[in-house]
Amino acid sequence: MKSINLIKMLGCTIILMSSTIVLAQEINFSGDWSAIYHEDAPERIPGPPLSDFAGLPLNEAAIMRANTWDPNRISVVPEFQCREHGGDYSMRGLAHMRIERVIDPRSQQAIAFKTRMNFHNMERTIWLDGRDHPPADAPHTWDGFSTAHFENGMMVVYTTHQKQSYTRRNGVPASSERTFTEYWYIHENYLTVLTVVDDPVFYTEPLVRSQNWVMNPALRITTNNCEYVLETPIGDDGQIVPHYLPGQNPFLTETAEIYHLPYEGMMGGPETMYPEFRDQLGEPLGDSRFCTLDCE
């Protein structure tokens, strides 16, 4: 145990020292990048099943918010129809990405990267010129406000001022108070971004995820128009914001039943992020040989 602590201390010291000693070396991420979805593919592309919150460090407020969420809300409340992903989630969704480097014409120094995603014209600016983040009471945006510097062969990006959004597209919230740090690095023709999201409103500890892209000069980023449409008359039943009263969501056990998984594991929480949680889970609810959905 002592040797593990020693390794931990040594690791911390080396990384902290190297972060101050190594000279910042700028990396050019410009180009067209196709997203690779081998990590968390079911969650990112078809979308997550209802009531699957496993592997997320959610506090009890987030779990209750997710348990009372009704998916009808994203169509019945018209203002939600055209919203972008949050800046952190945008790196995981339909994430084909074009990156352009912004050069200051006078100094010929890079002052920013601009990224554009395929979904909903999502654009981020990542400032490299050392500017401050806006005041706390300034407006928040979907993508937030990002600044970056180079460190240990990586671009380290810090983002604040995002709007309230979602951690997972099945009602798991993400607050406007969250911030995230990204570590961008290129290896051969691959780009990897490690994302650490800290949400003091809904998480008990940071959520760490990674995403990957491959350089694709043939990629074409398109444009995307969205006009919201009132599809459901509001007010017939007085329900202008669809939601379930606590304890009345009939779909909470659906995913656990489909996959024969213990319900407690599907409700998320920090313990579900770690392998040790398997020991607490006990036996599956049924025979997984009879799986009927996304079984491969």
Partner: peptide
């Protein structure tokens, strides 16, 4: 060990990121 090493790296990266903390305005 692998798990502990991952935790150590995460802790270090978080400490490194703390330099970005916003000024209280």
């Amino acid at each position: 060990k692998l798990l502990q090493a991952s935790k150590t790296i995460l802790l270090a990266t978080l400490l490194s990121a703390s330099q970005f903390l916003l000024a209280q305005d």
